[in-house]
Amino acid sequence: MEAAYGPFLALSGVTLTARPGEIVALLGPNGAGKTTLIRCITGLLRPRAGAIRWEGAPLDGVPAHAIVERGIAVVPEGRRLFGAMTVEENLELGAFAPRARARRTARLEHVYTIFPVLRERRRQLARALSGGQQQMVAIGRALMAGPTLLILDEPSLGLAPRLVESIFDVLREINRSGVSILLVEQNVQAALTLSHRAYLLEAGRVAGEGSAAVLLEDPRVRRAYLGPLAR
């Protein structure tokens, strides 16, 4: 697949697959094309060439809002909550698509079980929440769509290490309930610990791929991503 912003090719020859039930990490430095890839999958950007297939059907030409209905939900970078709306309104908007709407009461209950603090804060405006709680709302909002694939773009950004850990624990739980996860992360150590497989993206190309456990021990990966001070 290829993608471009205007004349600038941001991605070329990228091929990646995610199998059902997997946690796949997408790693790489800033500007490697991770966000571009996410924008292509979620329909915000049209790939210039190549195809994105989902559950056997091509996603090209499917508008972004309809892609959610196909079972792909995203937690965007920077969370992008509707700050002037309450926590519960944010969550309910996650179940906006007709099919998700039918099951929104049960899903809301589910989200409140995962993140009990959100139930307490459900009447508060989203922008009044702390960073960690906002991240919970963002994940909850995506879960409300009942996705089979959950994409997270830099979920650890700006969060304290302890919070990152608990968020990642939640992601593991979500995955156990049968949701595939595509995780874009700069926190390579944490991402590789969580995921089954990983792709390394560099300058718009796949520079490497493999099982997370193997990559975690790979000296090149350790040098490039984990820095000389890594264990």
């Binding site: 915000l44 809002h65 209905e69 965007p76 509707f82 996650g94």
Partner: peptide, 19 residues
């Protein structure tokens, strides 16, 4: 609500499944 969400951040609204 969809209208209010769109007013605040149309891209996030789109990603939430709002036309």
């Amino acid at each position: 609500r969809a209208i209010r969400a769109t007013a605040e951040d149309w891209e996030a609204a789109l990603l939430t499944g709002i036309d």
